[in-house]
């Protein structure tokens, strides 16, 4: 028993020595509010604030209050709060960068009470929206012919995008079904309603376009479909360059396909989703050109 108590004593002495060693000198304690939600926030906030032997932070998720304990000769409240803000958490002194806040996981995205509501920005956006409506109306009333033209090719493009989306999912059945619809859409186009430019290109590509779409429709193998799609995509690109689009269309390029010879496609989204590899290499590629013919 005696020896045990001795051992215990030694351990306590040792521990307290370690303790005192790790203690912060010139300690100053402050309590500040830091905005956040959950236990995950707590971990992030404390990790960002802590510096060994210089500062410790303890945050309470219910009260949102943090206890800062720091060496007043080595650091100050601002430095600690700045680090925490750079990790995504607002305090009375600092607002976190927007991109860092946006990257916090869903449960951590607390209400940013301190951030002023972007009044001017919103107003600007409204104005833009108004403007947009206005334009649309004007276009609708003054030039119905153009909108109809757009519709003529719109079906072709929409079906093309459906084929592409099916290929992204590596779904041969859907691809072939959508390709069949694309063939129909191509046949439905009334050439006389196209603008001169569109008409010229349409004449040039229509034959290939139809043939390729039909081939995709018949092919049951996704590899084969993709090979043909690479050809089809080039026809569509020529068409896209001369036709009106409601939203910008992105001309994208995968450098790897076809043994490094590369292949292209059109997409309505700027973010890359590769129809030639699907999930195998979904984001391989880059935007070559943004086509914006309103």
């Amino acid at each position: 028993m005696k020896s045990i108590s001795k051992i215990l004593m030694i351990i306590t002495v040792l521990l307290s020595a370690v303790n005192s060693f790790a203690q912060i000198k010139n300690a100053k304690t402050e309590t500040v509010k830091i905005y956040g939600n959950c236990d995950m926030c707590k971990t992030t906030i404390e990790k960002a604030g802590n510096v060994k032997n210089v500062a410790t932070v303890e945050w309470n998720k219910d009260t949102k209050m943090a206890t800062l304990n720091y060496d007043s000769k080595k650091t100050n409240q601002d430095e600690i709060l700045k680090r925490i803000a750079l990790a995504g958490y607002d305090s009375e002194k600092f607002l976190a960068p927007d991109d860092v806040y946006a990257k916090l996981s869903g449960c951590c995205q607390y209400d940013r009470e301190l951030k002023p509501v972007a009044t001017t920005k919103d107003a600007g956006m409204d104005m833009k929206a108004d403007h947009g409506n206005h334009n649309a109306k004007e276009m609708a009333t003054t030039n119905t012919a153009t909108t109809q033209n757009a519709l003529q090719l719109k079906n072709v493009f929409d079906n093309y995008f459906s084929v592409k989306d099916a290929l992204i999912k590596t779904d041969a059945a859907v691809s072939s079904a959508k390709a069949a619809e694309l063939v129909k859409a191509i046949k439905a186009v009334e050439m006389t309603k196209l603008s001169t430019k569109e008409h010229t290109v349409w004449m040039k590509v229509m034959k290939d376009l139809t043939a390729n779409a039909e081939k995709i429709a018949v092919a049951k193998d996704v590899t084969k479909q993709r090979e043909i799609f690479a050809l089809l995509a080039n026809n569509m690109y020529e068409l896209a360059k001369v036709s009106k689009q409601e939203t910008p269309v992105y001309y994208q390029h995968c450098p790897m396909y076809n043994n490094g010879k590369g292949a292209n496609w059109l997409s309505k989204e700027e973010a890359i989703k590769n129809p030639y590899y699907g999930s195998k290499m979904l984001t391989c590629g880059s935007v070559q050109e943004t086509i914006n013919n309103k």
């Binding site: 600092f94 607002l95 976190a96 960068p97 991109d99």
Partner: peptide, 8 residues
């Protein structure tokens, strides 16, 4: 006022 930071 409150300091809006930019990410490093």
């Amino acid at each position: 006022g409150i300091k809006q930071l930019i990410s490093p």
